[in-house]
Design a binder for these strands. Structure first.
Lengths: 180, 180
DNA sequence: TGTCTCATGTAACTCGTTACATGATTAA
DNA sequence: TTAATCATGTAACGAGTTACATGAGACA
């Protein structure tokens, strides 16, 4: 049995062979993992026969190892897909801070939510741009980009809900201040 | 400088003194941490003077250590609140699986989202119940429960957005199957 | 001249989970 | 009688981050 990150990497390789560096960039939006975690894992997956690689020489850039799934790797992904998904877990420092905003004044509490608002707006703009890049003909169930398409939709709608929430909280904090 | 979990624990203690066990239950919805991580951390925070405790003997239950903030601890929380919040990070196995649903048939892909749907509906019901328990007079900015109030609102609206999304994806998967 | 990107890797450390350990009460 | 809750703690392991290390080309 492999860990979740391993399956995630194998899953990405199922749609397209790529380098460890590419895998790092592609998995980042869904699972935080630095290159220092990914490179040793790929080496281990290679030793165990889930992936294989070819070394590609490049002009003007360092050589890279392009990894691809083996048959054993493909089987592992399909098996993993059949298991029920784990509950999602999130870590949000703002939630912890929100728990004790009663201790603070408006000059401390309001910027917390305005900062988050900006982060969310920046990310939304980025997601919208990525979504526009997926052509109509790739937005169907059997396209390799269907996953990206629906995940971008989710990210945008969740960010929208959080933006609304931040504005609602900021409003409450501002109004309460006028009364006191 | 303390880590985020430490500040989270101190933040909770700011509104109410409680045992390590209580802290574990209260921080769980916002930050995953088991008792085996929290107890040693509390001991360290006590050695460093951020918290203090009294041992309370109980009938019918094991003794407990009730922790409270020291002045140094209160200062640390206020300082922490002044810093901008870190970006939230989430880990969701379903996202990774969604990335490769193109590999599967409806009998594999649809249950993934139906399982998530159930998880979300159960959690929403639980959040709604908790929200109803917060009386009107505690829902203002200066109440110690204001944080809980707004966080429950966020949790419910985010879960709602995700429920809608799951239904949308399931619909697409079902319809596409009829065509093929 | 300095920072960014591409591209790989290792070492040292902290963070977080699982398992081990105890033990009384309470509910199914 | 079996599991759950309350309540604390430690040990061993795996997961994850930060820092160290290299090096060429692009861009400001």
């Amino acid at each position: 049995m492999l860990n979740t990150l391993s399956y995630g990497l194998l899953g990405l390789l199922a749609s397209e062979s790529c380098s460890g560096y590419d895998l790092m960039l592609r998995i980042q939006p869904f699972w935080q993992a630095k290159h220092s975690q990914i490179y040793p894992l790929l080496a281990k997956l290679e030793r165990e026969g889930f992936v294989q690689y070819v070394r590609i020489e490049q002009r003007d850039k360092p050589d890279k190892k392009v990894y691809s799934l083996t048959e054993k790797g493909t089987e592992a992904v399909l098996e993993w897909l059949g298991e029920p998904p784990a509950e999602q877990s999130s870590r949000d420092e703002l939630s912890l801070k929100t728990k004790c905003i009663w201790m603070t004044q408006r000059d401390i509490s309001i910027p917390l939510f305005l900062t988050r608002l900006k982060q969310l707006e920046t990310r939304t703009a980025y997601y919208e741009k990525l979504l526009q890049r997926i052509p109509e003909e790739e937005r169907h169930v059997h396209s390799k980009h269907f996953g990206d398409y629906v995940l971008l939709h989710r990210a945008i709608s969740l960010a929208g809900a959080q933006i609304e929430w931040c504005r609602w909280v900021v409003n409450m904090l501002e109004q309460e201040e006028e009364l006191s």
